[in-house]
Structures are given as C-alpha cells and as structure tokens.
C-alpha cells in the first residue's frame, strides 16, 4: 500500500487581506497577480503592487504557506518587456512559483531564472499528457493546472502518464469553455481573457429595470432578463439565457451553462486516490470573507479525508457554507462528472 498522495490546497488572493485570510484559514499555497494585464484577473482594485506583495510573501512564508504568482496572459511584441519584468519582479520577491501560459515567457523564465519553479496555467489549454509533457521537456514545468473539461477518469489518465504534478479546480466559478481557447468576451466586448486578462468586464455591464423585468447587458447585448421573483445575476456571457431554435421550436434557456459554481468536495477521496497534487479554489475577484470561508471548509474536509478517506462524506454544514457563496447558490461537478458534457 502506498500512502495517499499529499494534496495541497491552493487559494485565491485578490489582495493582501484575502491572502492573509487564506493563510490564516489553512491554505497551503495562495496565488495572486500584479496590478495589470499580466494576469487573467485584471480587475479594478484587485491584485498586488510590490509593497503589498513583499508583505504578503513574508506573511505567508512566516506561516509556512507558499505564494504563486499568475502571469498567465499572452504578451505581444508591443508589451513584451512588461511581462518579462513581471517575471523578474516575482522572482525578486522570492515567490515559490510563477504560473505561466505563454511559451515565449516560459522560455524567458527558465533561462533567466533557472531556480524559479514554473507552473503551467490553465490558460495554457493543456488537456492531455502529450501537451503537458511537451511543456515539461521544453521548459521544465513542474506542475500543470488542468482546464475544467476532463472527466475524473481522464484526469487519472493524465496523472498516470506524466511526472508533472497535476492541479485541478475544486471549487468556484466554472469556465465552461477550454480556458485559453475562449474569445466570447473578446467578440462581445473587445476584452479578452487571453490578452486583457478579463472576461465579461464590469465596464461593459449595464443593469436596467424595464417593464419586462431587470435586464442585464454586456456592451449592449442582452445577456438575461429577470422576473421580479428571480435574483438577477452578473451577466457573465456564457451564463445567460438565450433563444435557440431546433428548426421548429424556439426555446429560451441557459444555452451554455446555468449560473452555478463548481464544487468537487464530494469527490475528495477519489481525487486523492488518483494522485491529484493540488486543488485550486477559484475566486481572486471575491472578498476576503469568501476566501476565509471556503478555505476553512476545504481545509477541514481535506484533513478529514486524509485521516480516513474510506469513511469520508462531506458534512452537510460544509456544503451549506459553500452553497451560500456559490454563484446562483447552486453547484455542479462540471466535467469531472461525465454526463455534464
């Protein structure tokens, strides 16, 4: 019998208070970004300047937690030096790894900072072991974050065929599309996760109370309309209600995905058994209170599962806590559960 694989809890830090909340509530790692479009959560009021990062790294390291810096957008000829400078800054702060998506930037990082640990971002769109081993051979990546598109059996297949550690999304907002391969927001608003580091950006959002109900729009495009008894959600492009005709009848429904969050807590024993190395909590754009709450529940759950995986069941209280902070107050296993596809 081999011992169950150690599994890490990787929590979001949109700012210093969230970083501290994550560390205080049991995160093994926190991930964060700089205050610009070098990362895929480029939102107003979010992220770290050098002073905050220095304090954050010290706070985490003093408490045996690690800090990962996401530099996971795609640099271009006109702004290349800003991305390489961001890699240098991260290395200078003594962070524990950088999370990259662009091959050119990986090449720069592994040559300039050979000691710096590289993680392949989910934005790198690597969904199979050939792709992951490619990044390993070329740039020495030590961990890959999988896009939220594989079933659990497919995740296991990846793990069995690569020496690279595998990190998966365990909880939070659910991207339905392969990350790094979605230009829906760019098409509708001109702001893309790949290049500007944001999806369905706030500046493009309009809320409008009309006689037909509350309407939410992105750059003028109607994403959803809510009756008085419905709770109007943020107009994330892929979580709206649209009309699709089958040729005879038109139906209005959540054509791409419901407003719902990913929650894999009940799969924890399986995730450990197949050798998932780290579980990522989504939500750098969420509040420190969210981070504290979700980190605490997942810490308790992971510890309980480590003690006795065979008898692990998610406590009702944990699920209730997590549902409270979930989009649409509901959750899904996403693609890990094959029928979702």
């Amino acid at each position: 019998m081999t011992a169950p694989a150690p599994i890490e809890l990787v929590c979001p830090a949109g700012g210093l208070p969230a970083l501290k909340a994550a560390v205080d509530h049991g995160a093994d790692c926190v991930y964060a970004g700089f205050r610009d479009d070098t990362n895929a959560r480029n939102f107003n009021g979010l992220n770290f300047d050098d002073k905050a990062l220095a304090e954050g790294v010290k706070y985490a390291h003093d408490r045996s937690a690690r800090v990962l810096i996401a530099l996971n957008t795609f640099p271009q000829a006109s702004n290349w030096s800003r991305w390489t400078a961001a890699v240098d800054r991260a290395a200078g702060h003594g962070v524990d790894a950088v999370i990259l998506a662009d091959m050119g930037l990986m090449d720069y990082a592994c040559k300039r900072h050979p000691q710096l640990r590289l993680h392949l971002s989910v934005q790198g769109s690597a969904t199979n072991y050939e792709a992951i081993n490619f990044y390993r051979e070329r740039f020495g990546i030590q961990r890959a974050v999988l896009p939220r598109v594989l079933s659990l059996a497919q995740v296991e297949q990846v793990i069995q065929n690569t020496p690279v550690e595998i990190e998966i999304f365990g909880f939070g907002g659910l991207c339905v599309m392969v990350e790094g391969r979605c230009a829906l927001s760019a098409y509708a608003t001109g702001t893309s996760p790949n290049c500007q580091g944001a999806c369905s950006p706030g500046k493009a959002v309009r809320w409008e109370q009309t006689p037909r109900g509350m309407e939410t729009r992105l750059n003028g495009i109607l994403i959803d309309r809510f009756a008085d008894n419905e709770r109007a959600g943020y107009p994330t492009l892929c979580k709206g209600r649209f009309e699709v005709s089958d040729g005879e009848m038109s139906e209005t429904y959540y054509a791409i995905e419901e407003p719902t969050s990913l929650n894999t807590l009940e799969m924890l024993p399986e995730l450990m058994r197949i050798g998932v190395r780290a579980i990522k909590i989504e939500g750098r754009q969420r509040s420190p209170a969210y981070v504290a709450q979700v980190t605490q529940v997942w810490r308790e759950a992971i510890d309980a599962c480590k003690r006795d995986a065979a008898h692990f069941t998610p406590k009702a209280a944990w699920m209730a806590e997590l549902n409270k902070v979930s989009e649409g107050q509901s959750h899904t296993l996403g693609a890990y559960y094959r029928p979702w596809k």
Binding site: F74, P75, Q76, A77, W80, A101, D102, M103, G104, L105, D107, Y108, S125, R138, G180, R181, N194, C195
Partner: peptide, 12 residues
C-alpha cells in the same frame, strides 16, 4: 488555437 500572440513564441 495555439495562441501565438508574441514573437518569442513564434520563434520557438
């Protein structure tokens, strides 16, 4: 879909 946005990636 390979996301070639920058010259460094194209050279590689």
């Amino acid at each position: 879909t390979l996301n070639v946005f920058g010259p460094a990636t194209l050279r590689l």
